[in-house]
Nucleic acid binder design. Sequence first.
DNA 1: CCATTATCCGAGTATTAGCTCGCGTTTCTC
DNA 2: GAGAAACGCGAGCTAATACTCGGATAATGG
Lengths: 215, 215
Amino acid sequence: MGSAESRGPRSVRSAQRRVPKQARSRELVDRILVAAGELFATRGYADTNTNLIAEQAGVSVGSLYQFFADKEEILAALQDKWTTRLGQALDERLRIDADIDLAETIDHVLDIHAALNRDPPGLLGFLLTTPVVVLTDGVTEAIRQRLAEMIAVLAPDIPAERRAVVAAMIVHISNGLYTVGLTAGATNPAVRAEVRRALLAYIVPVLGNPRGRVR
Amino acid sequence: MGSAESRGPRSVRSAQRRVPKQARSRELVDRILVAAGELFATRGYADTNTNLIAEQAGVSVGSLYQFFADKEEILAALQDKWTTRLGQALDERLRIDADIDLAETIDHVLDIHAALNRDPPGLLGFLLTTPVVVLTDGVTEAIRQRLAEMIAVLAPDIPAERRAVVAAMIVHISNGLYTVGLTAGATNPAVRAEVRRALLAYIVPVLGNPRGRVR
DNA sequence: CCATTATCCGAGTATTAGCTCGCGTTTCTC
DNA sequence: GAGAAACGCGAGCTAATACTCGGATAATGG
């Protein structure tokens, strides 16, 4: 929370924006998203203004507003992009069956987090701990869905409503990766180890201590 | 994240403000904090402007700025007030010794959270999930200190650095009370039950499964 | 080539919200 | 009860930021 404060924008209703048709405009949109990602991750959403995003992206504000109705839509686009990116990464590594090794699975997930959060440093953490923009379902929503399905396979007797809560809880504990270090001033490995512990301790009993080995 | 956006305030350096000397100004400050608390909890920090706080408190902006250098200082004062409030509530209920019943203790903590978060509904949750203002140590800092001490008593062999991480982790899991419900659309009791489970599952092994009964 | 469409630009506008200032009122002090 | 100090007020100033607009430039398609 820096020195910048809230003022209202001029737009009352976001007009429909153009959809990029040519390659150069698609690249322009990409550059904007990259710049916005870096800025959001380092200075936060409120302290990042659209002129700065345009400047950092090497574009004019005018161009920016041809493809994004407002600042919030940039955040929404970022959340969208990273939702699929995270989803794909999980698809590649995770296999879900009755013989799952929970500890190993958790390690994979933590690996994925660490890798993605390095690309633009801190961006994934920012998106995961930033309240969801209304325009999208948010990054965590898709993850929760996936988790709920996994739980359904591993522990079919858990009712659907509780599955949703458990999935949200797992997401929340995982987000400790991005909040615990800040407050405790701890190193990344230390935080990761603790998050791993917490996840494992929570998940194993919830899933009724299934056949999976737990080291 | 509403429609309001970030603009910078005029002040470059917050001038020193007056300290309330008379009873009426102390009440005025109180009314401001109450109003700000309600507004922050319902509309968020960014969407709450100082004119609105003054109006809701039944004071003029001018009066507000006689006791608070800027908007952020109002938030800092709130964090301060609630840090001590939460600390006192914990002091009253929690006894920490080798014979501690962890499940019971966790229930007490959850009770305290629920009670305090009801006074102005959602304010505690807001403060606990809002990044700390630089001016104060934040609400969670004091809690972490206390937790670290408790851990030191119950499990003296855990090194100090890890104690800090564990304490932060416990705080984080507890904060699930305020985030899990939002994303999962679950009822409060369901969320509370899951947070309780997660806390217990995490804490018991960390403390080396001490003599405390765990139901 | 030329018409059409897409793209790009960036100075300028509208709006908002943080914050000040000078003056009237209440409380305190002796 | 009189001077001083503390207090309260709210219209309005100012900085800052989201966003627009009209014109120049580049790609496209026939």
